[in-house]
Every structure is written in structure tokens, then in C-alpha cells.
Design a protein around this nucleic acid. Structure first.
Lengths: 237, 237
DNA sequence: CGTAATCTTGAGTCCAATCAACCAATGTGG
DNA sequence: CCACATTGGTTGATTGGACTCAAGATTACG
């Protein structure tokens, strides 16, 4: 179903029934990608745009010595760069965190879509700009906040994003990340992530067991994190 | 002159004489912005796209307690987000570092430009995607590298970017940044930036005096930084 | 059910922050 | 034209947050 994408985009623009049909049609050809696989590898020249329908992915870059920085998470409804084919080669990789269902959209289909529907064109642009805004906020996170506030901020963002696509029923949702992956996201070691989570648990802020994250009081966590959702550019502004 | 923009874009796409004319025309109405001013402030609803013709600008976000993270530098030829008007409000600010000359491009002109010239459309897209790629690399920098390698990496990037728009004649170029601003860029304190620069100076890597940066051996600095220019997606790939 | 991956905790170390002067350069007004 | 103020740069001493190393507990999974 293109429903995940439609649901996400309709948070920004009013989509017509025709637009919905277009999106559904776009997602006709899907395939499965098992956890641990790479969807795209640095150096590739992708000619398709991928849409994540189920599961989680993540963008990352590797340094020569093996260190890894995760630069984005992809959750259902997320596209990997609509215009990626403009660049000659990928400058980063996209990995899959848990068994995923993916639609491959030929670039021609994307171009056609954007030409035919001004609403979708704008909506896809909006999604792209929000991705960039998230990247800026992650840079703020890594550059300015200490471990405790970094984790808090990331969890707030995840909560909002999961809510948005209907994957967080209530205060609890699935986060298929190891502590090592959390560390590589925020520039922390897994050991320090562990200690930070322990602290947040002991303060009654969260429960994180078996990849299930529960935020006991989102408002309070947002306050701690200094979380301002404006950068996600949600519907109601 | 739109020449700065044209020079930058022609590093990616072959622009026709007509395209050059279009760009020149676009930059007809210019104005000056003094150092220290904000070009755009968080919360604004810009209806113009700004093109920096002379001087330096920087994107930044402030936290409640006054800390600042610089998330990008704008040098001559850089546009501030072509499609910014799709978002309702700015989620960050753009400041001016040294007296600048700026062209304000009405969004209609941008849209028209992109419709009329496929080459320019692609080129502007390319510029946008490169901006995002730089952001990813900055996140890697802040998340994974220590102060010494962070500074080295940033200087390598600046060198390449300045070279690209013809603002670095040889190994030396103008960098109108205080050590505090360098710190806010990389998530370091000014004191530590100072010590790091001192070390790089003592190792004979750089000279930095009066806002003039000279990199004595770019190849060596790139090696130290682990700098791979692929993310800048230059012409020759 | 056993092995590997992940999580957890402790002890010691180190990189970068903080605190605090002092110096150099620039600029302004009397 | 000089006194003084301000900003930016430099250096030292100390502190602290996060890393490293290491070992044990728990969980996941073939």
C-alpha cells in the first residue's frame, strides 16, 4: 500500500482521490529486504527511488577505520531522496534495520508524478525539505547537547515521527535499535548510551525493553530535551 | 553579477548562453547587508530566495540558553534554499559574517527559471542536494572526529568550496570567522579551537592570521582529515 | 540448548570544557 | 592624537563528561 506515504504527505497537503490513486499505483511493485542488508551502498548509481513501506532503514557513512555515523532513520512512508539520480554516485549507504518491505519507483514515474500533480509535487518537496531540517537538528544535537539531552531529544523526535505515520499507538512504540546504533546516531559509545538510558529509566522518564520504547511523560521529556517540533514542519504549522 | 552562481552551476551542468543571460537577469536587483545583520530570522516566512553575491553568511540555530550551532556557511554563489517558501516558517536563521551583497529572487522568478531551462533546473537541484550532503558530512564530523581532525576536515572543505567559485587563488583564502564561530560550527569551545589551531600551526600545516587561511599542503591535510571530496559531487565526479 | 550478540556495570583515563588571566588589535571619542 | 573600551586571541590550571578496557549477566536465535 502506498497508504503510509499518502498518510504522511496528507499531513502537509490536501491530496485528491486521484493523488491517492497515483500513490497506490506507484507502489505496485514491492520487494522484501531482510534486516542487515544494504538497500543502497555508497558509490552506487541508483536509478530507482526507494520507498519504505514496512520496517526501518538508516542512512550512514563509514570512516576508513570502521567508525560509523548514522545520519538519518527511515521509517515507513519515507522516501530515499526523490532526486537522487541527479547525483552521479551515492555519498552514503542505506541499511535495513528490520525486515522491510520496499517499493522501487523508477525515476520516470517520479518525474511524471510531480508533473501531473502540483499537490504531490509540493508535498514531495516538503518531505525533502523536512529531511534536511531534521539533519540540521541532528547536527545541533551532536554539536551542542550532552549525552542525556541528546538521547532525550532523539526520543522526542522519534515519538513525533512515529505518531505522524500512525505507528505509535499511545506513548509506546517500536524502536528496533541496539544501543550501539543509538550511539552511532548521536556520536556516543554504546557504553555511555547504556548509562544514559539507565539514568532516564531511574528517573522514571522512559521504559525501554525489547526494542519497545515507552515515554512516560512526553511533555516532560520535551521540556528536558528543549524539544521544539517546529523543524518537523507539521501540518498545523 | 550572476557570474558567481553561473560559475558554480557550470561546474555541474553545461549552461547555454541563454542560461547565463537568465541568471544575470535574475540578479538585477541587489542590496547590501552589513556584517552582523540577520538576513533571515527563525520564524520568518520568506517569500524571496536570497542569493549571496559577495561576502559570507551562515545558517545557525540558537538554543534557549544562548548556545549556537552553525549548520552551514554560505559563500558567494550560494542560494538559501530554492524552495524555502514551501515551508511555512524558517526553522533557523541566516546571519551575515562580512558585508555582503545579496540578490533577492522572487519565488515566481525561480519557478519560471526552473520551468524554462531543464539544465538550470537540474543544476539548481544539484546545488540543493549538495547542501544536504554537506550537512551529512558535518554531522559525521561532529559525531565521530576529535577536535584536531574536525578542524582539518572543515578547512579541507572550505578550501575546495572556495576554489570552486574562484575565491581561493592558490593555497590561501579569506575565512572571516572568529575562533568562537569556528567553535560553534564544530561543537567546540573557542578555547579549544585556539589550542587546536596552535597545534596545527606548530606542525606546519596551516597559517591563519587576520582571517587569511593558508593551507601549506592540502594533500597532507586531506590525508589527516580523512577528507574524501565525493560528497561535494564535483564536476569530474 | 548452546553460542553469539547485546546489555550492564565497574575502574581508570583522557579529551575537551570551564574558569581565569592576560595580551594584541581595533576603534572611538574627547 | 592619545586614552580608553571592546573584541578577539592566547595561555595556564583545574574539572568533568565521555571513552576505554574489561568482565559478567542477559537475551536472542539457529
Amino acid at each position: 500500500m502506498g497508504n503510509v506515504l499518502a498518510r504522511k504527505l496528507s499531513g502537509f497537503a490536501e491530496l485528491s482521490a486521484e493523488d491517492h490513486a497515483r500513490l497506490d499505483q506507484l507502489c505496485a511493485r514491492t520487494f522484501e529486504v531482510p534486516a542487515g542488508d544494504n538497500l543502497i551502498t555508497e558509490g552506487d548509481r541508483p536509478s530507482n527511488v526507494f520507498l519504505l513501506l514496512e520496517g526501518w532503514g538508516y542512512r550512514y557513512k563509514l570512516l576508513e577505520d570502521g567508525r560509523r555515523q548514522i545520519v538519518a532513520f527511515l521509517i515507513p512512508g519515507d522516501l530515499c531522496d526523490i532526486h537522487i539520480f541527479i547525483l552521479k554516485r551515492m555519498d552514503h549507504s542505506i541499511g535495513i534495520l528490520c525486515d522491510a518491505k520496499v517499493a522501487a519507483l523508477p525515476k520516470e514515474a517520479i518525474i511524471e508524478l510531480m508533473e501531473q500533480s502540483p499537490a504531490l509535487n509540493r508535498a514531495l518537496w516538503w518531505a525533502t525539505l523536512v529531511d534536511e531540517a531534521v539533519l540540521r537538528e541532528w547536527l545541533v544535537n551532536a554539536g551542542q547537547r550532552d549525552a542525556y539531552h541528546r538521547v532525550a531529544h532523539l526520543f522526542c523526535e522519534m515519538s513525533v515521527r512515529m505518531q505522524r505515520v500512525g505507528l505509535a499507538g499511545g506513548p509506546s512504540f517500536h524502536v528496533p535499535l541496539t544501543q550501539e546504533e543509538l550511539g552511532d546516531t548521536m556520536g556516543l559509545t554504546p557504553v555511555h548510551v547504556n548509562r544514559t538510558l539507565k539514568r532516564m529509566r531511574s528517573e522514571g522518564l522512559i521504559t525501554l525493553r525489547g526494542k519497545q520504547l515507552e515515554i512516560h511523560d512526553v511533555g516532560r521529556l520535551m521540556e528536558i530535551a528543549g524539544f521544539n517540533p517546529n523543524y518537523l514542519h507539521l501540518a498545523g504549522e
